[in-house]
Amino acid sequence: MLIFWEQRLVFLATPKAGSTAIEVALEPLASLAVQRPPELKHANAARFHRHIHPWLTELSGEAFTTVALMREPVEWLRSWYRFHLRDAPDAAEPQHGFEDFVRRYLELPKSVTQGIATQSSFLTAGGRPVDRIFRYERIGDFTHFLDEWLDCEISLPRINVPPAADVSLSAATEAALRAELGTDFALYEGLG
């Protein structure tokens, strides 16, 4: 999470949606950068509006605008899978493929995504959604927004790149995943 005090802007770091690169690029401009522990770095919309936003509003006398990125839902899970491969003893020959990973996710979503069930729950939980959500796949729109809001040119580094892997799915598993993530797909499709 990055807080820009003067500009009354807060970046909420959606896991597996470029948050590390954004934090590296923007930390020098932020008034406060929360990078550890992950529970604080990745504070979701509900936690932010319940605990942090009231404090910021009390101190400043003004509301803060929240921004975040959302990744295409299947790509989000592919990123999680590759993330897990980084820590695997032999990432070149994973014991369990992406198909098994998705099946585990479908059985117990939070088990493979560090306690985050879905992006939609992260970005809209508690009925107080993030003010501006940008598609990760159109990160140029996000950096343009930041260029204007922060009044400086933003250039994002390419870091934290996961290993290549076979991330194909059977038609049946992909259909089950799309059904399970219906709310995420609806939110993603509604982003401008």
Rank of each mutant, 00 (worst) to 15 (best):
Ile3Arg: 05
Glu6Arg: 01
Gln7His: 13
Phe11Pro: 05
Ala13Met: 05
Thr14Gln: 15
Thr14Phe: 09
Pro15Ile: 03
Ala17Arg: 12
Thr20Glu: 06
Ile22Glu: 04
Ile22Met: 08
Glu23Asp: 03
Glu23Phe: 01
Ala25Leu: 02
Ala25Tyr: 01
Leu26Val: 04
Leu26Pro: 06
Pro28Arg: 01
Pro28Trp: 05
Ala30Gln: 04
Ala30Asp: 03
Ser31Thr: 02
Leu32Arg: 10
Ala33Glu: 10
Ala33Ser: 15
Val34Lys: 12
Glu39Ile: 04
Leu40Ile: 03
Lys41Ile: 05
His42Trp: 07
Ala46Pro: 08
Ala46Glu: 14
Phe48Met: 14
His49Val: 03
His49Trp: 01
Arg50Tyr: 04
His51Phe: 02
Trp55Pro: 06
Leu56Ile: 02
Glu58Phe: 04
Leu59Ser: 03
Gly61Leu: 14
Glu62Ser: 00
Glu62Cys: 00
Phe64Ser: 03
Thr65Phe: 03
Val67Asp: 08
Glu72Leu: 11
Glu72Cys: 14
Pro73Lys: 00
Trp76Phe: 03
Trp76Ala: 13
Leu77Pro: 11
Arg78Glu: 10
Ser79Tyr: 01
Trp80Leu: 09
Tyr81Met: 14
Arg82His: 11
Phe83Cys: 13
Asp87Pro: 11
Ala88Cys: 12
Asp90Gly: 01
Ala92Glu: 12
Pro94Lys: 15
Gln95Ala: 15
Gln95Asn: 10
Gln95Ser: 14
Asp100His: 08
Val102Ala: 07
Val102Trp: 05
Arg103Phe: 01
Arg103Pro: 11
Arg104Asn: 08
Arg104Lys: 12
Tyr105Val: 00
Leu106Phe: 02
Leu106Cys: 05
Lys110Tyr: 06
Ser111Thr: 07
Val112Arg: 14
Val112Tyr: 01
Thr113Pro: 11
Gly115Tyr: 02
Ile116Lys: 11
Ser121Gly: 14
Ser121Glu: 09
Phe122Leu: 13
Ala125Tyr: 09
Ala125Cys: 13
Gly127Ser: 13
Gly127Trp: 10
Arg128Ile: 02
Pro129Arg: 05
Arg132Pro: 05
Phe134Val: 08
Arg135Gln: 07
Tyr136Met: 08
Ile139Val: 00
Ile139Pro: 11
Gly140Phe: 03
Phe142Ser: 13
Thr143Leu: 14
Thr143Trp: 12
His144Ile: 08
Phe145Lys: 00
Leu146Arg: 13
Leu146Trp: 06
Asp147Phe: 09
Leu150Asp: 09
Asp151His: 03
Cys152Asp: 02
Cys152Lys: 09
Cys152His: 06
Glu153Phe: 08
Pro157Leu: 08
Pro157Lys: 10
Asn160Ala: 07
Val161Gly: 01
Pro162Trp: 04
Pro162Leu: 03
Ala165Val: 11
Asp166Pro: 10
Asp166Met: 14
Val167Phe: 05
Ser168Gly: 12
Leu169Met: 08
Ser170Ala: 06
Ser170His: 00
Ser170Ile: 06
Ala171Arg: 14
Ala171Glu: 09
Ala172Gly: 03
Leu177Phe: 02
Glu180Pro: 10
Gly182Gln: 10
Thr183Val: 10
Asp184Asn: 15
Phe185Ala: 14
Leu187Pro: 10
Tyr188Ile: 03
Gly190Val: 05
Gly190Asp: 02
